[in-house]
């Protein structure tokens, strides 16, 4: 069980947190205008990085605030946590190879 640094409350036990998956997946600006495929990618497809991963967590049994984190999915170690209103740039994934599409 990890000790997770809530950017608002400080270090707290893992059981207080809720996992929110990949960070920085924006809701499409105009959903009606995206293709079925683009929409499917928004709804169902998330990166599944082995290694450093930018993801979302919520301190659901504490302050109930969401925050972003960079965590290594092989060691589970948190490298960084950031409030959503942190003006510092938020870490995102390194650029990926262009996705091909399902056929």
């Amino acid at each position: 069980m990890q000790l997770i640094e809530c950017p608002w409350c400080g270090p707290r036990e893992e059981v207080e947190f809720h996992y929110g998956g990949q960070a920085h997946v924006p809701y499409p600006d105009a959903p009606a205008e995206v293709s079925d495929e683009e929409w499917a990618h928004y709804v169902f497809f998330r990166d599944n990085t082995k290694g450093r991963f930018a993801e979302r967590w919520c301190h659901s049994a504490g302050c109930r605030r969401w925050f972003n984190a960079v965590r290594d999915t092989t060691t589970y170690r948190f490298e960084r946590v950031q409030r959503l209103d942190d003006p510092e740039p938020h870490a995102t994934e390194p650029a990926r190879a262009r996705r091909s599409t399902a056929s």
Partner: peptide, 16 residues
């Protein structure tokens, strides 16, 4: 799987 499909540039909706 995702480690491999990432190499191929295929996006697969699985989470490990």
């Amino acid at each position: 799987t995702s480690v491999l499909t990432d190499m191929l540039g295929i996006r697969v909706p699985v989470q490990s």
